[in-house]
Structure formats: C-alpha cells, structure tokens
Simulated scan of single mutants.
Amino acid sequence: MILVQTSRLSGKVALVTGGASGIGKAVCERFAAEGAKVVVADLDGTRCAEVAEAIGPDTWGVALDVTSQESIDAAVRFSIEAAGKIDILVNAAGIYEVQSILEISRERTARVFQVNIEGVIFMTQAVARHMVERGEGGRIINFSSQAGRRGEGPAVAYCASKAAVISITQSCAQELIRYGINVNAIAPGVVDTPMWDVVDAKLGSREGLQPGEVKRRVAAAVPAGRFGTAEEQAAMAAFLAGPDAAYIVAQCYNVDGGNVMS
C-alpha cells in the first residue's frame, strides 16, 4: 500500500505525456491525489478525456502527438489556457520496437527516435520556455528505461533512445537549473503495463514461447522477484515533483527492484 501525501503538489499544474495508459496514467492519478491539477496528454484525445473524467475535478485531457511541433504547441497552449500555467512536465510518452541489429530498418528506427528522443527534447523546449517566461521555476521529469543503461536486445533502437533520454536529462538540467527548473529522470525496470504484454507477445513469438513465458522469466530474474507496478513509478515521480526534491538536479533514479545497482 502506497501512502499518499495529499497536499504535496497542491497548487501545482502538471502536464503528463503518455498520460492515457500505463505509467503515464498512474502518474496523472498520483499527482491528482497529491493535490495537483493535471493535463492528461496522449495520442487518443477521447481516451485522455475519459481518464481525466475518471480522475475528477481540475483534470483535463488533450490529444498530443509528440512527433508534431504543431501538436506540441497546441497541447502546451491548451494546458496554460485551461489551468493557467504549467509547473511540472512529465515526459512519459514512448514506444517500444523489437528489432535486432540484423533486422533493424531506418524507417522503424526513425519512428522510435522521433517519439522517444525528439518528443522529449521538443516537449521540454516548449514547456521550459513557458517556465522561464513565468520566472517561478518548475520540474521536468523524463522516463528513461533500464534498457538505456545496460542494453536489452533485440531492441537496439529502443535501448539507444532510452540511453539518449538520460543524456538529454543531464544536458537540460545543467542549462535550466539557473532558472530554477529541476530536470531529472526515472529509469523503470520491468513494469507490468500494456506495453510489456506487447513485448511478451513479440519476444515470445520470436523464441517459440507460450504467451506469458517471457514475462515469467523476466520477473524471476529481478532480485525483488516480481514486476514493478506503474504506481511505484508514479510515487517516485511525485517525490521528484515535490518540495523535498528541490536540491536534486540531473539525476536518473532506478526504480527497478534491484536490477541495476548504482
């Protein structure tokens, strides 16, 4: 059971990409429970509206394609108009591709990089400009992956993209902290979300395994002996967004059940 400190984010406004499902949705729910106003942003605007309605008052949904600058600008503008400002950006949108180095194509690699790398860069740029103009600081939290720390084949483009997120976090943090904007990252281990069901199916098919077998083996290899939950990732995001993390800058936190020790 996760203890929720319901006032930690009171008065704050958070824009969460990838907010309609998985870790992003859990972040939206946790932030709202801690007092924040939340904008749920994802590709499916209808789904975003449904998630926002389920969360409750002071929550909005907006369609967002992080590969489109027009869409990014529209989502940021909507958030400011609806909630008055943006104090917190969470870059949780991302895609996974199973492609080994022997199979990889330029087209599929470009798509992974557009979403997982360029999406983080240009969402950060758009929101940081607003934060700098307001002059009241802010928090930006990026979701990387353990794959970006140690490789996780056959998914070379995905691993490269998530390693890039760590570097982007460090570079942006060094530049933006002068404006009172803290930038940090979270590297989840294996988390039981719909994306892992897709991974299980794709990798299982490649290796001739029954559905669920990849997930079972992966969970058994985690020192904690299980998959993590999206809610556990959201708890770290809430900490990094809150006042207790004011002196934390340019860090990437492993929330992974002991997979990586650093």
Rank of each mutant, 00 (worst) to 15 (best):
S7P: 04
S7K: 00
R8E: 01
S10N: 10
G11A: 03
G11H: 01
V13P: 00
L15F: 15
K25M: 13
E29I: 00
E29W: 00
A33C: 07
V39A: 06
R47T: 12
A54E: 08
G56Y: 03
G56Q: 04
V62C: 14
S68C: 09
D73W: 10
S79N: 10
G84H: 10
D87N: 12
I88W: 00
L89P: 05
I95Y: 07
V98M: 14
V98F: 08
Q99K: 13
L102P: 02
E103C: 08
S105W: 06
R106D: 15
R111P: 06
Q114W: 12
Q114K: 14
I121E: 01
F122P: 07
Q125G: 01
M131H: 03
M131F: 03
S144F: 01
R150F: 15
G151K: 07
G153S: 11
V156K: 09
A157M: 12
Y158R: 15
C159D: 11
C159F: 04
A160I: 12
K162S: 06
A163G: 15
A164L: 05
I166F: 07
T169K: 10
S171W: 02
R178A: 15
Y179A: 14
I186Q: 06
P194Y: 07
P194H: 13
V199N: 00
V199Q: 00
D200H: 05
L203V: 14
L203K: 07
G204T: 07
G204D: 10
G204F: 08
G208D: 11
G208T: 09
G208I: 07
Q210I: 02
P211L: 02
A220T: 14
A220C: 13
E231G: 00
E231S: 03
E232P: 02
A238E: 00
A238L: 02
L240V: 04
A241R: 00
D244K: 03
A246E: 11
C252E: 09
D256V: 04
G257M: 07
G258C: 11
